[in-house]
Every structure is written in structure tokens, then in C-alpha cells.
């Protein structure tokens, strides 16, 4: 960096340039959790709080460290992640196929959409007893529950996206004599992609929610199992460790999904691109 830019930067800092102010504002969100963590740690050490119910951060860190060191964390996280992945693939796949068909073919929409909308009104957890009855208590019933959870937001998002494609853009395809298949690939797919990504992210979020429900119902491994285990042996630190793991994995997979699709969405003319520009 040359001298001139240095002085320039200094001058900007001194006058409180917008960029510096923004960076500082980003950190402001950390104040509350840090105060909470310090307060918890102090409270337990001073004996105001009972550590058995409110685990201090040091204890949680220790538990997580043990889980990592023994490899237990990876075993549980892998089991949970695997269930989410399989359920997500099935649920999202069905949502994309049925949503597209329902959006593109009015006859199919009239046939299946009312039923799907009615099923959507059922709180998905309510299916659990039936799924256990049908598929047993092992993986199949869990994955089915997760797939059902993922299905609805994806179906709705894709259906809405297909229905809201601009007729004028379709007409451009007609003018250039695109076949049905080409229209799908060159117009339908890119036009619906932003909504598809949004609905996939919503579906993934629900997938993580439902894997907890599925594992609480009964599992011998998985992060949800850690939750139940922690409750039964009275270890709140284990419960909070599992909660933090869920938060981390949910955040990580969502960020990965967003990053993987971002290159295809750079063309958008909205706030998400304006931010970067």
C-alpha cells in the first residue's frame, strides 16, 4: 500500500467513513451473546445459578471437546446428516417434479393440487405414529418424515415460480421456435431458479427441524439421540452441545447450498445483487 492510500485510509477512519461504521455495526450483534455467556459463567461460579441446569460455557466447551476427541460427535453428526441428506433428496426431488408438473399442466394442477394443499394442513409431526406403524422404528420412517417436511415448501415454491413466469418471456421462446424441451431448459429453468433456490433452502431448514423430531421419537445414534440422552441422564451440557451442533450444521449446509447456487443467480436485479455491487 502506498503512502497516499494510507493517509487516505487514515483520513477516512478519522472522519468515520461509512465503511468503517458498517464493519463496526456488524460486531454489535455479538455483544448480547457474549454478555450472556460471561454472565452464565460467573453466575455458576459464584453459586447463583445451578450448573446442573444451566451449563456454563466452559463446561459446554469441555463436553464438545470430549465428543470431538472420542469421535462420538462425528458418528452422531454423520448419522443425523445422512438422514437429512436422504430425506432432502427425496422430498426436494418429489417437490420439484410435482411442482413443475402442477405448474405447467393445468389438468394435473386441478387433479393433484387440492389434495396436496389439504395434506399440507396436517402438522407433519402428526404423521409420525402412522409412519412408525408402516415403516417400523428404524431409518425408513425417519427419512420419510424428513422427506415430507422438505416436500411442501419445495412443491409450493416451484409451483408458484412456474405459475409466475412472465408470458412475454415464453413468447420470446416461441418467436425463436424453441421446442417444449428447449423452452424448459432455456427459459423455464433459469426463470424459476431463484424461487427454486429459496424453496430448497426453506426445505433444508425444515429437514433439520424434522430430523430432531424423528430422532427424539427413538434413535440409537444421531444428534437428536444426544438430546434425549442428555435429558435422561440429566446432563444439560450434553443437550446444549447437541443444540449448538444442530445450529452449526444447519447454518453450514444452508451456506453451502447458497454458495453453490450463487453463480447461477448473479443476473438478478434486486437487493441481493445490489448489496454486492
Amino acid at each position: 500500500m502506498s503512502d497516499t492510500t494510507l493517509t487516505h485510509a487514515r483520513a477516512e477512519t478519522a472522519s468515520g467513513s461509512p465503511r468503517r461504521a458498517f464493519a463496526w455495526k456488524g460486531w454489535i450483534g455479538l455483544i448480547l451473546p457474549v454478555i450472556l455467556a460471561i454472565g452464565l459463567e460467573w453466575g455458576v461460579r459464584a453459586g447463583w445459578l445451578e450448573g446442573r441446569f444451566t451449563p456454563p460455557p466452559s463446561k459446554i466447551a469441555g463436553t464438545l471437546g470430549e465428543l470431538f476427541a472420542s469421535g462420538e460427535w462425528f458418528r452422531h453428526a454423520l448419522a443425523t446428516g445422512w438422514r437429512v441428506a436422504i430425506g432432502f433428496v427425496f422430498g426436494a426431488g418429489a417437490g420439484i417434479v410435482l411442482g413443475t408438473l402442477s405448474g405447467a399442466v393445468p389438468m394435473i394442477r386441478r387433479l393433484i393440487d387440492p389434495t396436496i394443499q389439504a395434506l399440507r394442513a396436517v402438522p407433519s409431526i402428526a404423521w409420525v405414529p402412522l409412519f412408525i406403524l408402516w415403516f417400523g422404528i428404524f431409518e425408513t420412517s425417519k427419512i420419510t418424515l424428513i422427506a415430507v417436511g422438505v416436500f411442501f415448501p419445495v412443491y409450493l415454491g416451484v409451483l408458484g415460480a412456474v405459475l409466475s413466469i412472465d408470458r412475454k418471456v415464453i413468447e420470446v421462446g416461441r418467436v425463436f421456435r424453441l421446442s417444449k424441451l428447449e423452452t424448459g431448459r432455456r427459459i423455464l429453468l433459469p426463470a424459476t431458479l431463484p424461487a427454486l433456490v429459496t424453496s430448497l433452502r426453506a426445505g433444508l431448514g425444515l429437514g433439520w427441524m424434522f430430523v430432531v423430531a424423528a430422532e427424539i421419537m427413538g434413535a440409537s445414534e444421531g444428534l437428536g439421540f444426544l438430546l434425549v440422552d442428555g435429558q435422561q441422564v440429566g446432563r444439560s451440557d450434553l443437550i446444549v452441545s447437541a443444540i449448538l451442533s444442530f445450529a452449526f450444521l444447519g447454518f453450514l449446509t444452508d451456506a453451502l447450498l447458497a454458495a453453490a447456487t450463487r453463480p447461477y443467480l448473479r443476473w438478478r436485479d434486486d437487493l441481493s445483487t445490489a448489496e454486492k455491487a
Binding site: 412475454k168 418471456v169 420470446v172 433459469p190 447461477y264 443476473w267
Partner: peptide, 9 residues
């Protein structure tokens, strides 16, 4: 057309 109808993507 009256509007350019370019494909935004």
C-alpha cells in the same frame, strides 16, 4: 416488441 424482452439471466 414494445419492451425489449431480454432474458435477464
Amino acid at each position: 416488441f414494445q419492451e425489449p424482452r431480454l432474458l435477464p439471466w
